[in-house]
Write a protein that binds this DNA or RNA. Structure first.
Ligand SMILES: [Zn+2]
Ligand SMILES: [Zn+2]
Ligand SMILES: [Zn+2]
Ligand SMILES: [Zn+2]
Lengths: 138, 138
DNA sequence: GCAATGATGTAATATAATAACATCACATTT
DNA sequence: AAATGTGATGTTATTATATTACATCATTGC
């Protein structure tokens, strides 16, 4: 059972519609793209999307990609909040696909660095840009 | 001699004005804030700012902070291009100050991770959010 | 019923970035 | 000097992203 299905029942109608759009997509979507896709379901204004997204991000079901101004469904089962201290994203600049990664070593390195710099870390934004395996010349 | 002064002469009038605004600021500035600050110098439209910023970023004199939609003057002397493979930013959510960091170990970890995932890395966006030393309760 | 709360609807506005096209400054060539 | 090419600049309009303000609706508890 996917995370989406699991929390399905707890979500409101609009949250469910937005979550559905993101789950079906094979990549990140902008808020306005989501709005367009949901017009047939009665959506009329950006705020309907942004309000749902806010909640979904808070729940850890969706992540915001800062370098794209876009949103993507969580690909894990362990993202409990919006802190995003423990995930990073590899964004393919060719096909647009996004892979959500967890890497303990990277996480440790970041924590360590922050500590050394006397920086009290609340959240890490790590977004790698490049080419995914499928898009590289073989 | 700062990097700004060093390349001063190579920059155009508008590039110099934008670079000056960013150098004087003690934190990141949005493009529209820069525009407002430069109105007294004849700036009228966003494009005048964005064109200058594009060039400055390309030269490595300025970095774009993706999670803030803002720009900050480079704090190093070694940022030769806009790839930003080798820098990261610690952004204080309290005072807004930004520290540009270089960390070989983090860089290596990222490169390593990308390799393991068969991801051909072109650029890393790493922006830490939290509290800087001055803003932490002592 | 009635108040409190959370979700939703709607319009307007704010903020960030780009497109399209005209003009200017200056160097090179003829 | 005149013609040409190139890069920088100016200007207007438009697109893209996100938030503010306020009205309405639904559910729950009293
Ligand atoms: Zn996740
Ligand atoms: Zn790809
Ligand atoms: Zn730099
Ligand atoms: Zn601070």
């Amino acid at each position: 059972m996917s995370k989406f299905e699991a929390s399905n029942t707890d979500l409101t109608k609009n949250q469910n519609l937005v979550m559905g759009a993101l789950s079906q997509a094979n990549g990140p979507l902008s808020a306005y793209t989501i709005l367009d896709e949901l017009r047939e379901h009665g959506f009329r204004a950006p705020l309907q999307v942004y309000r749902a997204l806010d909640k979904l991000v808070e729940l850890g079901l969706v992540h915001r990609l800062e370098s794209l101004n876009a949103f993507v469904a969580c690909q894990h089962s362990s993202c409990g909040g919006d802190k995003r201290e423990n995930v990073l994203f590899a964004i393919c600049e060719t096909c647009g696909k996004v892979q959500e990664l967890v890497d303990e070593r990277l996480l440790d390195t970041v924590k360590n660095l922050a500590e050394n710099e006397d920086f009290s870390l609340s959240k890490s934004v790590i977004e790698l840009r490049g080419k995914c395996g499928s898009c590289q010349p073989s």
